[in-house]
């Protein structure tokens, strides 16, 4: 029982990060039907800035805002340089563009920094735990969960209660009609990328802390988890993306604890197989948005 609770908390902590990443993927997907394979770069770029900042003598209090701001700016920059030029293109083109952006960023760091691992210190409280009864809760997990709840609440408010949120949701459900109704496509798309960057920035803070190092291809894993979580939840559904993130996190942790010792390092493989099974039996994901075929 204790072990299960412990795992649930671990899983929620992990899943919260995925949820934030997935939500960022889903916001952009909703607005321009782009499944952003470059979403992980919003962690790679701040990751290298973190490495740089610590070499300059910064500390976590100043690095955290740096991560968030740089993630938002990177997201806007990538939109401006690449995605704005393929707006309205086929899904095939959009997918490959984002994949190419990932590659350019990764290769850029390879070219100008190096292929080797760049380390930086984790925060002092990283490994601390709080004992609650027989449970040992990691402060890190707790922080992730609390921050995620706050951010999700804020995002919900933004989407439900502000003009920007209304414009975004309208554009996500029918872009052309929203434009006819006076929604400015440029600003709503940029807004979506900024929001996506902000969510990636928050997730990035924890991801970067946890990793303790950065490499040119550091973006692949967060991208994959975010994309998969968004897909598990059901592409196009924001609530689904959050749910998908949590499910993915829990599945990873629980599976790792249940698998026999010999094959524990195959956890990721098993998670993928489970996801494949989910798609076979529920092709649209957990909260699938009904797709009406237009004639």
């Amino acid at each position: 029982m204790t072990e299960l609770l412990q795992n649930l908390i671990d899983g929620l902590g992990r899943g919260s990060i995925y949820a934030l990443l997935a939500l960022g993927v889903a916001v952009v997907f909703g607005i321009m039907h782009l499944l952003n394979f470059a979403h992980g770069e919003l962690i790679t770029i701040p990751g290298y800035l973190t490495y740089w900042a610590f070499n300059q003598g910064w500390n976590w209090w100043t690095v955290v805002p740096l991560i968030i701001v740089s993630a938002v700016l990177s997201s806007l920059l990538i939109e401006r340089v690449a995605f704005s030029r393929v707006r309205g293109a086929s899904d095939f083109t959009l997918l490959l563009t984002s994949f190419g952006v990932h590659f350019i960023v990764a290769a850029g760091f390879l070219l100008y920094v190096s292929a080797s691992v760049k380390p930086y210190p984790r925060p002092g409280w990283f490994a601390d735990t709080i004992a609650v009864g027989s449970l040992n809760i990691e402060v890190f997990d707790l922080a992730v969960i609390v921050v995620t709840i706050i951010v999700l609440a804020g995002t919900t408010w933004l989407l439900q209660r502000t003009m920007f949120g209304l414009a975004l949701r309208a554009a996500a459900s029918d872009f052309d009609t929203a434009r006819l109704m006076g929604v400015k496509s440029d600003s709503v798309i940029r807004g979506a990328f900024a929001l996506s960057g902000f969510l990636a920035g928050i997730a990035g803070v924890f991801w970067i802390m946890r990793e303790g190092q950065v490499t040119p291809t550091a973006g692949i894993n967060p991208m994959l988890q975010g994309v998969l979580a968004a897909l598990i939840g059901g592409l196009g559904s924001l609530r689904g993306a959050v749910l998908g993130g949590l499910v993915l996190g829990l599945a990873e942790v629980l599976l790792r604890s249940w698998l026999p010792v010999g094959i524990q390092n195959l956890t990721t493989g098993f998670v993928f197989v489970m996801i494949a099974l989910l798609f076979i039996f529920r092709p649209g994901g957990l909260l699938s948005v009904p797709q009406v075929e237009r004639v």
């Binding site: 293109a89 490959l96 190419g100 590659f103 350019i104 290769a107 070219l111």
Partner: peptide, 22 residues
């Protein structure tokens, strides 16, 4: 003109073709 230029070329080719000649 630095080492690993060839991997940047790959990425640029991909994005460039997607933008100008998908």
């Amino acid at each position: 003109f630095r080492e690993n230029l060839n991997s940047v070329v790959l990425g640029l080719a991909m994005v460039g073709f997607m933008i100008w000649r998908p």
